[in-house]
């Protein structure tokens, strides 16, 4: 600490208004990808699907009739990882206290949550598409004779799943306000409770499992129900996140 400059060398001209929504969405994406945890989750999401595809296709001895199922199932692994990206974007701010700086610079909490939601949706869909694209490439190499009918729809549904799962993570993260708590709760529900429900009450599980909804959408079955399930998950998580975010004091 050797300098004692008390005034800037030239006047600092700041923007008169808060950043535009697209700019703020871009800032939220940069925030998510400027930490090692964010980059690690993004990298894992991109690599899970092709890695799983390589293992599955390599181990398979029977010829593959259609690529839709493998692309969706392996893509769902990436979508599951993208839940963490959403959680880190919201709950991570509360865990590290950076939410204080965020709200000091943009006190409109609903706007912050909306731009975070848009940011994680964009990241979720892009990373999911990349993952599904890489998985498709692996499949093309290992199963050259498979039918690609419905492959484009499967990749599109994985993009939707990536966005939806990232949004669910962001909503739950905002509602809980604690990274460890949000991650534990949401993965316990998705990987613990829902599979048990599939065994005990399969008919009911089909009506609430977002993974099944994505698979149904990709296969073109139960369209309305599948969309309703995904919208309900995203809606409930986002509303819970918005309500808790508005009420919670930044201590």
């Amino acid at each position: 600490m050797t300098t004692a400059i008390v005034s800037p060398s030239r006047p600092v001209v700041a923007r008169r208004t808060s950043p535009s929504v697209p700019r703020q969405v871009g800032l939220e994406i940069r925030k998510s990808l400027s930490t090692r945890s964010g980059l690690a989750v993004a990298g894992a999401a991109v690599l899970f699907a092709p890695a799983a595809m390589a293992i599955a296709a390599g181990a398979s001895s029977e010829p593959l009739s259609t690529v839709t199922g493998p692309i969706v199932v392996t893509g769902m692994l990436s979508a599951l990882a993208l839940i963490s990206l959403g959680v880190l974007a919201t709950a991570g701010e509360w865990t590290h206290g950076t939410v204080q700086t965020t709200y000091l610079l943009e006190p409109r909490r609903s706007r912050v949550l909306a731009t975070k939601a848009a940011a994680v949706a964009v990241m979720g869909s892009v990373f999911a598409v990349v993952a599904a694209g890489l998985a498709s490439g692996v499949l093309a190499l290992l199963e050259p004779g498979a039918s690609w009918n419905g492959g484009g729809r499967a990749v599109l549904m994985i993009a939707v799943a990536g966005a939806a799962f990232a949004l669910i993570g962001a909503g739950v993260g905002a509602a809980v306000g604690n990274t460890a708590g949000a991650l534990t709760g949401i993965y316990l529900l998705d990987l613990g409770v829902l599979p048990i429900l599939q065994v005990v009450k399969p008919a009911f599980a089909d009506k609430v499992d977002p993974g099944n909804a994505v698979l149904s959408l990709a296969q073109g079955t139960h369209q309305a129900l599948s969309i309703t399930i995904l919208v309900a998950w995203v809606g409930v998580a986002t509303v819970a996140g918005a309500v808790m975010t508005r009420r919670r004091a930044v201590q």
């Binding site: 001209v13 950043p19 700019r23 400027s34 206290g97 204080q100």
Partner: peptide, 25 residues
């Protein structure tokens, strides 16, 4: 208000760049 309210994984420059872009300087 709280100097520890920063993400430990970011560099000082990245932290300030994000703030600068938010404020518009």
């Amino acid at each position: 208000i709280d100097a520890s309210a920063v993400h430990p994984g970011r560099t000082g420059r990245t932290h300030l760049r994000l703030l600068a872009d938010t404020i518009g300087v």
